[in-house]
Design a protein around this nucleic acid. Structure first.
Lengths: 177, 177
DNA sequence: TTGACGTTGCTAACAGCGTTAGCCATAATA
DNA sequence: TATTATGGCTAACGCTGTTAGCAACGTCAA
């Protein structure tokens, strides 16, 4: 319990986080500067520091929210006939709908001490539960993330059938009879 | 043929690229600034622009070299008993040996017009050849990248057995009898 | 030998970044 | 009414990539 307590955001801080998220989703990571966020709110950049300690805290708040939203989607998907596929599809759909947000969530180490406690675990739980064993859960997650981020980054050939590769991958992890 | 021709680097440019790569590998991406690179060579940052058009060109040169090195490793691995596993292992080993370099190679869209022509294809070819079909090749690559980058970014639990998850994933893509 | 020119360095500067220090007006509280 | 906390502000610092313009040097032609 050495981790510093993450205190809840004030209403004003939530407004700032909301503005930051909109900016990120609409204009991408370069637009997510303290000055641009402040602009959107009609204030100056240094004023943000009255509500949030630094830029990383702003990003962490966005990421925490996104984890909660993902967890919600995954929990709904567990009810499907093939829950692993349903969760994976929800994962990929989320990333396509929020590409800049998805990159922010995945492209670097999490500073877990400063995220909403439990959010990450809540998103991870359905995958672990539906695949059965942790090694498979991790392998499926790795495939889903790899596929998704390479796709977002335009790393596959333009004529590649990525839906087919996606199905091929998920099929590989299906229980063998 | 709309792509601008990539002209070969002058000897001095190659020195700059070498210094930049060392800096990146030793101190990480934040150290890879034009001023730090110049420092290493005993010159000033603006002088770099006499040899390379911009920072992106510097990064592209590093990435192009890395692709060639990867291709070399993959081509050696195709001789193994189980070439898919051997290539995948070489991939993961390369990333572990050069984490900052690996991130630079994968974390954003390539500007293919400005890379050494053919380097990317040369690295991709062995995977395609040994897996047989393109969908499987892409799925295996996605798994390998996903596993590797999540590992580098410390996204798995600290007690996770990542070697086991790695084997589990590769096993899933093995031809079924 | 001299003049021209390309090469390769330099300094100064610009706009943008995250962040800090310090000031001030307003609102809430003792 | 006096005090304190809140939430803005400006100015500034050191960092970033990059450009403009200048100066020294080597090469090569007339």
């Amino acid at each position: 319990m050495l981790a510093g307590q993450v205190e809840p955001l004030s209403p004003r801080a939530k407004e700032i986080v909301a503005a930051a998220r909109t900016l990120l989703e609409e204009e991408g990571p370069d637009a997510l500067s303290m000055r641009r966020v402040a602009d959107r709110l009609g204030i100056r950049a240094p004023s943000i520091y009255k509500h949030l300690p630094d830029k990383r805290a702003l990003e962490n708040a966005i990421v925490s929210d996104a984890f909660e939203e993902m967890a919600e989607l995954f929990e709904q998907a567990t009810a499907a006939d093939d829950p692993v596929v349903a969760i994976a599809d929800a994962y990929r759909r989320f990333a396509h709908a929020h590409p800049h947000l998805y990159r922010l969530m995945t492209e670097r180490p999490l500073d877990r001490d400063r995220l909403t406690p439990g959010a990450e675990e809540r998103a991870a739980a359905p995958v672990l539960r539906t695949t059965g064993d942790p090694d498979t859960a991790r392998a499926v997650w790795a495939f889903a993330h790899g596929m998704t981020i390479l796709e977002l980054n335009g790393r596959f050939p333009p004529d590649a059938d990525l839906d087919a590769a996606w199905r091929r991958g998920l099929d590989a992890f299906r229980q063998r009879p």
